Amino acid sequence: MKILALDTSNQTLAIGIMEDHKILGQLQTTLNKNHSTTLMPALEDLTQKISIKPSDFDRIVVAQGPGSYTGLRIGVTTAKTLADTLKIELVGVSSLKTLAANCVGVTGWIVPIFNARRQNVYAGVYQWLDGQLQTIVADQHLSFEQLCEKLQDQSVYFVGVDVADFQAEIQKKLPKAQINTIPAWQYPNGITLAQLGALAQPEKDIHAFLPDYLKLVEAEENWLATHEAGAESYVEKI
């Protein structure tokens, strides 16, 4: 099975192409956040270099979230369009789980985090059990203080480039916690995403597939604060 994996959920652009257990090609950039203009040219360039046609793919795997609202929409929309056009399978994988899966050989709880601003984070808790990465605490949006409360008395391993934003608090509140120092593990990897997607069940309804934001955009939160729930839609119907 040939798999195309795409992650534009945060600053990193990651693309991975695999056939069964063989890596055919991959691309990763961590500086350019303008995925709307870089994703498709990067994908076209990579597939041409390894002589793969879009029609060769059997499954598309995409980082479903959480992450940047714009980045998620770009990745999910691209993956849905390709899957629908090519009539192939679509799989969504947690963006946080993709980070956690980098940490091969780590025992205890693996905690990938994204900075959600205002001392909040997107975080989940994962652990390797019998060779499989299992979800211990589901991905959620919460304050960093709340996250630390959940992690008390546990063997914890933090991963993700945004961990640096909270390093002082981690050392203060969770002095026994480990912080990843392997640079390659700090960023989403297209091949890791493809491997996770190979094990997941494909979506039954491609058109109903949506990003997993975990939090409403600020404009929608403000709108809901002044409107009765269910009375009318936040999105204007024309």
Score class of each variant (00 low, 15 high):
Lys176His: 13
Gln152Thr: 15
Thr226Cys: 11
Cys148Asn: 10
Ile238Lys: 15
Ala79Lys: 04
Leu147Pro: 02
Thr29Glu: 13
Ala63Met: 04
Leu6Tyr: 10
Trp109Phe: 11
Pro54Gln: 07
Pro112His: 01
Arg59Tyr: 12
Gly124Val: 03
Leu86Thr: 07
Leu151Thr: 10
Asp130Ile: 08
Asp212Ala: 09
Val104Ala: 12
Leu6Val: 15
Glu236Pro: 07
Thr181Lys: 12
Leu13Ala: 07
Glu44Ile: 00
Asn34Ser: 14
Arg117Asn: 10
Ala123Gln: 08
Glu149Phe: 12
Gly92Ser: 02
Ile238Trp: 11
Leu24Met: 09
His207Val: 13
Ala194Gln: 01
Gln11Leu: 12
Ile88Asn: 10
Pro188Val: 01
Glu145Gln: 15
Leu4Thr: 03
Phe144Asp: 12
Arg59Ser: 13
Ile206Lys: 10
Leu133Tyr: 03
Gln167Gly: 10
Asp7Lys: 05
Ile74Glu: 01
Ala101Ile: 01
Gly197Gln: 11
Ala5Trp: 01
Leu199Ser: 11
Leu147Ser: 02
Ile88Leu: 14
Gln167Pro: 09
Val91His: 04
Leu151Cys: 10
Ser9Trp: 00
Ala164Gly: 08
Asp45Gln: 12
Glu149Ile: 11
Gly67Tyr: 01
Asp153Arg: 03
Leu129Lys: 14
Leu214Cys: 01
His21Asn: 15
Ile50Thr: 02
Thr98His: 09
Val61Ala: 07
Phe209Ile: 08
Glu220Ser: 07
Ala168Arg: 08
Pro54Leu: 12
Phe57Tyr: 06
Asn120Tyr: 10
Gln119Gly: 04
Ser68Ala: 13
Asp212Gln: 12
Val163Gly: 07
Thr107Ile: 14
Ile191Thr: 09
Gln119Ile: 00
Leu72Asn: 06
Tyr126Arg: 00
Ile238Ser: 12
Gly65Asn: 00
Ser9Asp: 01
Phe209Ala: 11
Val61Pro: 05
Leu99His: 13
Val159Gln: 03
Arg73Ile: 07
Asn120Ala: 05
Val76Phe: 06
Ala168Cys: 02
Leu196Met: 14
Ile136Met: 13
Arg117Gln: 14
Trp223Cys: 04
Val163Ala: 08
Ala164Ser: 14
Phe158Asn: 05
Arg117Asp: 08
Gln28Met: 09
Phe209Cys: 12
Leu82Asp: 06
His35Trp: 04
Thr135Trp: 01
Asp84Glu: 09
Ser155Trp: 07
Ala177Gln: 03
Ile170Glu: 06
Ile182Ala: 08
Ile23Pro: 00
Lys204Leu: 11
Asn115Phe: 06
Trp185Gly: 05
Ala194Gly: 06
Val62Ile: 12
Ile17Gly: 13
Ile74Cys: 03
Ile50Val: 04
Thr47Phe: 01
Leu90Gly: 03
Ser94Phe: 04
Tyr122Met: 10
Asn102Gly: 03
Asn180Val: 02
Glu218Thr: 14
Tyr69Thr: 03
Trp223Lys: 05
Gly25Trp: 00
Asp84Tyr: 09
